[in-house]
Simulated assay, not measured.
Amino acid sequence: MVRLYTDELNIGYGERLIVKNLSVSFPDQKITTIIGANGCGKSTLLKAATRIISHQSGSILLDGELISKENTKVLARKMAILPQSPESANGLTVGELVSYGRFPYQTGFGRLSKKDYEVIDWALEVTGTSEFKYRPVDALSGGQRQRVWIAMALAQETDIIFLDEPTTYLDMAHQLEVLELLQKLNLEQGRTIVMVLHDLNQAARFADYIIALKDGEVVKAGNCEEVISHGVLKQVFQIDAEIGRDPRTGKPMCCTYNLIKGD
């Protein structure tokens, strides 16, 4: 089942096209990972799909409707995004930050309702951040902060969550912690997760569906067996990769690689 897809999408800045004639689908209730070299259009695609930026032509459809014509609050109840570098939360407590996720549901003077407080507490509990509720966000570790930002996205109560490089600046343990949390949200709550990752082995391990981009175009889209291959990685990253098997998951993994140098 597919609720969200793009059709012949073109996105650019000025006269320079970053994403070109792109038609991709994001499977519902699955984890989709977008991979590709820096500047290939991964983050641009996420921003356009969540209407942070506009697109030049083509269309992005959710539940059969153009997102460009959707009411902002209605759209914010369907999808949430965690950007690559979330804005500073200096001076805010964890509970205050997570409460911002309730904005799409607020009316009048924007006061939080009993339901809002219940959802905030639920989001904190699910992400394992309840103990930090009254602590300043900027007093937390990188992994803790990232979980708090995810809690804010969860408080939005959306079916679809976009994350742009959610493991950036985190050490190996915290990267795994965040990815396992997202996997849990997908498996236990049926959340559709769409994220950009740089680590190919993390993409293979956690994604149900992978979209490989190069210069704003799809090179290959499919499951990890189809995308994490010598030929696809050669075309996307210009590397000569040795593909093996993850001894714990049995999924393909990039064991080592060399750069393919030009003439």
Rank of each mutant, 00 (worst) to 15 (best):
R51I: 03
A207L: 05
V236F: 04
G58Y: 08
S23D: 01
S229P: 03
Q183G: 13
E131T: 11
I67T: 11
L45P: 09
G64I: 05
S99K: 01
D7Q: 15
A139I: 08
A76H: 02
N223A: 01
T32D: 10
A80V: 05
P27A: 10
R77G: 13
V98T: 06
P166N: 03
S68Y: 01
F206T: 02
L112A: 14
K251E: 12
Y100G: 05
V24A: 01
T6A: 13
K214M: 11
P252A: 03
L185K: 04
L112H: 07
G108I: 06
D159R: 15
E87R: 06
P166R: 00
N223I: 05
G143R: 00
M1V: 13
Y105H: 11
S54P: 04
I260F: 13
T107Q: 08
T129Q: 11
Q189P: 03
P166A: 01
K78F: 12
Y257G: 01
K30M: 12
I53K: 01
T107L: 06
S43C: 06
I210Y: 09
I31F: 02
V2K: 09
G244K: 02
L176W: 00
C254I: 12
Y134Q: 14
A153G: 14
S43A: 07
L82P: 02
G250N: 08
A204K: 00
L17R: 11
V2H: 08
I52S: 00
E188K: 15
R111A: 14
I243T: 07
I239W: 02
Y134N: 15
F26V: 13
L154N: 05
G91F: 09
L259A: 14
E225T: 08
M195H: 00
G110W: 12
S99V: 09
C224K: 11
I60T: 02
L213N: 02
T50F: 06
D215F: 10
K69P: 00
C40Q: 08
S113R: 09
P247G: 08
I161Y: 09
L45M: 10
S113T: 15
D121L: 14
S88W: 03
G142I: 06
M253R: 14
Y209E: 03
W122L: 13
V119F: 08
R205C: 11
A151W: 05
A151R: 11
M1R: 11
H55F: 15
T127V: 11
